[in-house]
Design a protein around this nucleic acid. Structure first.
Lengths: 357, 357
DNA sequence: TCCGTCGTAGGAACCGGTTGCCATGGGTGT
DNA sequence: ACACCCATGGCAACCGGTTCCTACGACGGA
């Protein structure tokens, strides 16, 4: 008997067990399973039978270490529960499997330490690429940390991809894919202003979050372009959740803020705000117009259907994977900026007879 | 110089590179990094410096094969985009990392072959557990396939977990966690009937899907319990998507079906149906009552807020991980059934003055 | 001063695969 | 009938770690 015989089923069997059962060497089993090497039909049959009887599957980790593994790719996000990121995860996952990669998903719940830890784990796993998604605070500390990670991954033959995150200093080995928050918000806000609205309430995200900042910049730029001076009191912020939108809107109403339209920084925020408006007995868009951002599927089913900005999240995920994996060592660092477009539905009306509250 | 020297950064470095740089043997490096073994302070310092200079991280695959790896756990679902499954994925992911496991996520888009392939890959990865989620067709072929997978995983020291899927024959090494679709649907439908509704339109999922079947059974059972004979014409089915709900409802309206309430098999379906009702100029709940199932966060933001059945998806995911990982070889096979409860919101009213269409 | 012991570090086997290189044996051409 | 060639399969090294076992040096005690 071999050093560790393994009769039949029960306990993972090794390639040596298969070899013993088939009466051949381990190399032969490997070659039969590998495919290319010429093996006689009789031997192949015996080996395959042994494989079947033992229900043998080669250990992927061992294969990986020997250099013939399934490559892996990591996807790190704040919270898989958010519809927009979920769509992105879907795109990533689809494209990864299409390209024969495994896909590790991790949500960090916004915890920076957890994120760091996870990236380190991914480096240990020798992931082909690490995709980070979602806005973050663009601090010096952030840049330093990310640069270190980028270098670290690059030197290990991997690649850092930032999606919708603040880009790093030029020269850092990183792929950046952004969707144009500012332009999208600009276009959306311009649409509101074109409808005659002059007091547009902005419901933002975390002030330090670059996605939130970009959308707020678009809001401000549109006002300037239309010669409207935006009232700072009309800019509220919390985070990108439905509850934040609900809370902020209740607060705005109870404070007696005057506005004829609301621009939420997220469809989720818009959903919460919409409910708060309904609860206050206000009609959308007759009393107040409302717009969101992201164009999540549910935006169509709000009542009234939500005017919003479409962001191609799934395509974004696909793109992130594709650009990261199709790299050759001398590919220049890419920085892609994806466009967005306004989707007009029923939640915005011209400021007309009923002039808001 | 060693067989493959690796001066400093650039190209992943091995433990031998670190050892060479620190002037010690690989075993010593391993021990310094491992922690427990006594190493002199001077040596430890030198090794740690070399590790830092080379930015070394031990290869997780190699560690795994040597028996000291981070355990991994796989989560397979139809589509991460669906809000309910996304919440479950979140629960799984959180609990997995809490227990120090890595979490592989794969969506199969309902493709059985793809699912099979992925499970095989997971077995090759020596995943500690494979969690399958989402209803499926309960055919003889399904049972045979799943039993084989369960045995196969069990014999490799792994574990199959079915979440919201048809259970297998007793004796199969599998953990089953179900949420009680029939009871939930029963309670919900009873609520509708108690409000005086007698013609309740049921918008189902795929007829072969066990989740859809369970909810339909609850619908029927509630009718029987209330002495109401359900009209078969009032049972439509497609799938669990928002678009299906929208389409089915349009169809029902154009066919002139008579009903005073709608019970959708999913909140997503309900959302689509609600929009179709609005488009037809019908008011909910004044003209028609509407109820969903799943209690996704958005259910509150539909207008009117959706009466639905709450399913603890995140908790379900946590539970799946916990029961799967806390197993000892002689733990009996578990079969958990989680309860649900009806959440009453504004989309259902007593059948009153306005008697539907 | 000599010996025993403890602390420390290295050598080598092993984890489960892959693959380069070589030996063997049967078949074929002349 | 002899030589040659090619098909086939085994040995051993290697991938990047861990860990058992052993050797060596320093120290303390007798």
């Amino acid at each position: 008997m071999t050093r560790k015989s393994n009769g039949d089923a029960g306990g993972r069997s090794t390639i040596r067990d298969v070899a013993a059962r088939a009466g051949v060497s381990a190399s032969t089993v490997s070659r039969v399973l590998g495919g290319e090497y010429p093996v006689s039909t009789a031997t192949r049959t015996r080996v395959m039978r042994a494989v079947r009887e033992l229900d043998y599957v080669a250990d992927a980790r061992a294969k990986a270490i020997a250099g013939v593994g399934t490559p892996t790719l990591a996807f790190v996000l704040d919270d898989i529960t958010g519809p927009s990121f979920a769509h992105m995860a879907h795109g990533v996952e689809r494209e990864a499997t299409r390209l024969g990669h495994l896909c590790l998903v991790c949500s960090t719940d916004g915890d920076t330490d957890h994120e760091l830890e996870f990236i380190e784990t991914m480096r240990a796993q020798r992931a082909a690429a690490v995709i980070l998604v979602g806005g973050a605070a663009d601090t010096a500390e952030y840049r330093a940390r990310m640069s270190r990670i980028a270098d670290s991954l690059a030197s290990a033959g991997s690649r850092l991809v930032l999606c919708g995150r603040p880009p790093l200093d030029p020269g850092t080995p990183v792929t950046v894919i952004e969707y144009d928050n500012e332009s999208g918000a600009y276009a959306l806000c311009a649409h509101l202003l074109a409808q005659g609205h002059r007091r547009v309430l902005f419901l933002g995200g975390k002030p330090e979050n670059t996605t939130a900042q970009g959308r707020e910049r678009g809001y401000l730029a549109a006002h300037r372009a239309h010669g409207v001076d935006p009232d700072p009191k009309l800019r509220l912020s919390a985070d990108f959740t439905r509850d934040a939108g609900h809370r902020l809107m209740r607060q705005a109403l109870s404070q007696g803020l005057e506005f004829t339209a609301v621009m939420a920084s997220t469809d989720m925020v818009a959903a919460g705000a919409l409910t708060a408006l309904h609860e206050a007995g206000l009609s959308v868009p007759d009393d107040v117009s409302l717009a969101g951002y992201d164009d999540i599927p549910f935006a169509r089913d709000l009542y009234p259907a939500l005017t919003t900005v479409h962001v191609p999240y799934e395509e974004l995920g696909r793109l992130a994977v594709r650009t990261a994996l199709s790299r050759t060592p001398d590919t220049p660092d890419e920085h892609l900026l994806l466009g967005t477009h306004v989707v007009v539905r029923g939640s915005v009306a011209a400021v007309g007879e009923a002039a808001g509250r």
